[in-house]
Design a protein around this nucleic acid. Structure first.
Lengths: 229, 229
DNA sequence: TAAATAAATGTATAATATACACTTAATATT
DNA sequence: AATATTAAGTGTATATTATACATTTATTTA
């Protein structure tokens, strides 16, 4: 069968917008840029761009994440298609939003600077262009839901981390405090953490053991979707 | 600020495809049509169509559901954007998939016939065009997930239904058997069902009480997202 | 009035979630 | 060398929820 091009249907600009989450030990953060084109040039915005004809939408999202952070092979998930008619005053643009989880210190500072990018605490977001606020809100809800059943929170932490850092991350994501004993017991009972002999000693005299993942168990749980929180 | 049209970016055909779920007392069903245009004309397909410039993507999905079933104000949820380059051999079409839950006997028979539509058991699907099989698979997974935490299963049942019908629905969705006593206890403990004095008497001599929803409790749970299964 | 049928119901046990406070290891201070 | 300081690390009791499992009940039909 030859290639038939569908005729006489409306064509759309397709944007991809990325909610890039990070965690710096205190709050959950999102990476925002100063928008570089009209309309609303100079306002805070999610990193985005237009999809191109010869790439998949997923690839476009990866390309755009790479463009801002220099990072590849990052945990990224499609969030939602935002398709309201008036969402972008610059034209009829349908946007596919993705969220990504990155280790906050691994992105390229030069790239971030060149895009006028900045990390913002989720609880202190500036006003954003278009419907980007709704995107962030939905992304946060999805992250909460996802992190409850899938071991992806680790994507936001350094390779080795203490139990208190892990708990701090979950508390930041859910904006609630957990009981240390119960949290520790539960997370260790999953058997996906491996304790190192090394200790983190900056925040206490006693020092807290570092942990890393047991990759094998991790993969297993990822596919099964075990309840974490 | 005037209206700026973004220039020089690729434009895409935007399709909307609907996974329409129904339940007839035995298995979970999906509504399929015989595709009416090339390529792959005559093959089984999800109901779909192209989005138009002056409507939101959500509206397009509603329009397409209405076109096939004659139904409005239906539970419908965006599923996922399918954006691979080669997904539609007829052109570069990005599709936004939605899933809908309808009462199987409420759709217009004339409309269904005019589209050559037919209900298929999810476990006995024919081969489908493009990536529609993946869409159905994802929709089923999302339905399972959603129905576990939100009281939406009822959208698939008649207004009044018996506990056995409700259990049958959940068993069909999860493709597993539940213990009748535990299921009944749990579902009734939510307090969202109201028992009628009327009984269904076709399937037994004793007869089974009909239930309807307690709308107020229903709304409350819908927003809170209480665990059902 | 007996038989047949599916509906309706309860209880014991296991697993999981929650609430709650003291001990320990290492360093810093006197 | 002894003591104070700091956050890390840990256990137990109770409540809640999930699971496993079989008999009684209401109604119709023979």
């Amino acid at each position: 069968m030859g290639r038939i091009e569908y005729k006489n249907y409306d064509r759309f600009l397709l944007a991809v917008d990325c909610i890039i989450f990070g965690f710096d030990g205190s709050g959950l953060k999102a990476l925002l840029i100063k928008r570089g084109l009209e309309p609303e040039i100079g306002k805070w915005s999610l990193m985005g761009g237009f999809a191109e004809k010869e790439e998949s939408v997923d690839s476009a999202a990866q390309r755009i994440l790479y463009k801002l952070t220099g990072l590849e092979k990052i945990y990224m998930e499609q969030l939602h298609c935002f398709g309201d008619v008036g969402r972008d005053p610059g034209g009829r643009v349908v946007s596919i939003a993705y969220f990504a989880l990155i280790k906050i210190d691994e992105s390229s500072t030069e790239l971030l600077n060149s895009h006028n990018a900045k990390w913002f605490d989720l609880k202190k977001l500036p006003s954003l262009v278009f419907d980007h606020k709704a995107m962030v809100k939905l992304a946060k809800e999805r992250l909460q839901q996802k992190v409850s059943n899938h071991p992806i929170g680790f994507e936001l932490l350094p390779t080795k981390f203490t139990l208190q850092q892990l708990q701090g991350l979950y508390e930041a994501i859910f904006e609630t405090a957990f009981d240390k004993r119960n949290f520790t017991r539960k997370i260790l009972s999953l058997g996906i953490l491996q304790r190192l002999d090394e200790k983190e000693k900056e925040s206490s005299k006693k020092g807290a053991f570092y942990y890393i993942f047991d990759k094998k168990k991790y993969k297993q749980l990822e596919s099964e979707g075990i309840k974490l929180i």
